[in-house]
């Protein structure tokens, strides 16, 4: 059910794989902000072009990209339909324009993130965010989530299997809802118990509230400086295009 969420898309053959994750996250964030705030069409098209090139450079399989974009596209199509039919006929052009803008921005931001961040494994992402000094609690939460996602998922699968071997087949009835209620409730209780045991284990190893990080990322001059220059140039160009549109 959650299988693909924690596994990165990277192929190991891309130039981007070796770049310092912190630089990639910062680039993805600034890129997303610039595209999201853009008001002129040329900037949005340029942003989309940049995002597509990032996905190409990251060498992600086209199938994976489509799978990740699909939910977004469905939402965008619904949005376009709603905008088309709910506005008075005279304003339909405006409605369509808005729908196009939404589609351009959303696709650019998502594709850019897939290219830059989707290629990192979750552990690296968690560490990089922690080193970028996001609040410690958030970083800890993310790292714990990564660790226990699988454990909870396996627990869920075990409970489902236990129900299945006793002849449980989900249907649209009270029994099914009650069973799923029990299942989710049990999952929460077990999760809570496990968190208590984990805290006990942490205390046994001298934990008193502060979480220390072992790994540090090395910022490499040879690889990361060129990447940052390219990233800064792209962002400035996008801002430039936007500026020209306003004049």
């Amino acid at each position: 059910m959650f299988k693909h969420t924690l596994h990165p898309l990277h192929s190991g053959r891309s130039l981007l794989d070796a770049i310092d994750p912190r630089a990639k996250i910062l680039f993805a964030a600034t890129f997303a902000i610039v595209v999201a705030l853009a008001r002129t069409m040329p900037t949005m098209f340029a942003g989309l072009a940049v995002a597509i090139s990032l996905v190409v450079v990251a060498r992600i399989k086209i199938g994976d990209v489509i799978r990740r974009l699909l939910p977004l596209e469905i939402l965008l199509i619904l949005l376009a339909l709603v905008l088309f039919w709910t506005v008075p006929a005279m304003e339909r052009r405006d409605g369509l324009r808005l729908a196009t803008i939404a589609a351009l921005k959303a696709n650019a931001v998502l594709l850019g993130s897939i290219g830059l961040i989707g290629t990192m494994d979750a552990v690296t992402l968690g560490h990089a965010l922690a080193h970028l000094h996001i609040p410690q609690k958030l970083a800890q939460l993310l790292l714990f989530m990564i660790r226990y996602f699988d454990v909870l998922n396996r627990e869920y699968a075990r409970l489902r299997a236990a129900a299945k071997v006793r002849g449980f087949r989900p249907k649209m009835n009270g029994h099914t809802y009650r069973t799923f209620g029990h299942l989710v409730g049990m999952l929460l209780i077990r999760g809570f118990d496990r968190s208590e045991r984990t805290l006990a284990a942490m205390k046994c190893r001298g934990f008193t509230g502060k979480y220390y990080m072992l790994d540090h990322f090395a910022f490499s001059r040879r690889r990361d400086v060129p990447f940052c220059i390219v990233a800064a140039t792209i962002v400035s160009l996008l801002v430039g295009i936007e500026w020209m549109g306003w004049l």
Partner: peptide, 19 residues
């Protein structure tokens, strides 16, 4: 599974000494 709560082995082993 209760005891190993860090994403990687090295971090888990390092957790105690860092504390």
């Amino acid at each position: 599974d209760d005891q190993l709560f860090c994403p990687t082995v090295a971090e888990d082993v390092a957790f105690g000494p860092l504390n």
